[in-house]
């Protein structure tokens, strides 16, 4: 596996834009970016951990990070879908339109894109 280098946090703050709901007990590391487009939202539930430099970008609906879910450093989530409760997403993983079950473990560096076209 080609391990993608993690970028150091460019700033100590995490940032959000658009309709983003963060439970008070959820924690977000430095440099994370949480964005919801005009028609979309992001909801992060109790006890969830969002790692350094993670990017969550909701498009066309809602991204839900359920209670106790853990996103490692540099995780990228785009589109719309759900990360199940207590799920673990390994560092540097990319998921388009997530459908991660409760307690599911996703290896670091994974690429999960449901809609990549098949080539002949």
């Amino acid at each position: 596996m080609h391990l993608i280098p993690l970028q150091p946090p460019s700033e100590s703050q995490a940032r959000s834009g658009g309709d983003v709901t963060l439970h008070p007990s959820a924690v977000v590391a430095a440099g994370a970016l949480i964005l919801a487009e005009a028609d979309s939202r992001v909801a992060i539930a109790a006890g969830a951990c969002i790692g350094m430099g993670a990017v969550l970008h909701a498009v066309g609906g809602e991204i839900v990070v359920a209670a106790g879910a853990n996103l490692g450093a540099g995780v990228l989530i785009v589109g719309t879908g759900r990360i199940g409760s207590n799920a673990c997403i390994g560092a540097a993983t990319t998921i388009l339109n997530p459908a991660v079950g409760d307690g599911e473990m996703v290896p670091p560096g994974s690429l999960i894109t449901g809609s990549t076209p098949a080539r002949a």
Binding site: D39, H57, V59, V78, S115, T116, P117, R119
Partner: peptide
């Protein structure tokens, strides 16, 4: 490397569209 096909270009424009609203 193989040539890019129209289906690849369609996928690419779908992803690009994701950011166009911004």
């Amino acid at each position: 490397l193989p040539d890019a096909l129209s289906i690849d270009l369609q996928f690419a424009s779908h992803i690009i569209g994701i950011n166009d609203a911004l």
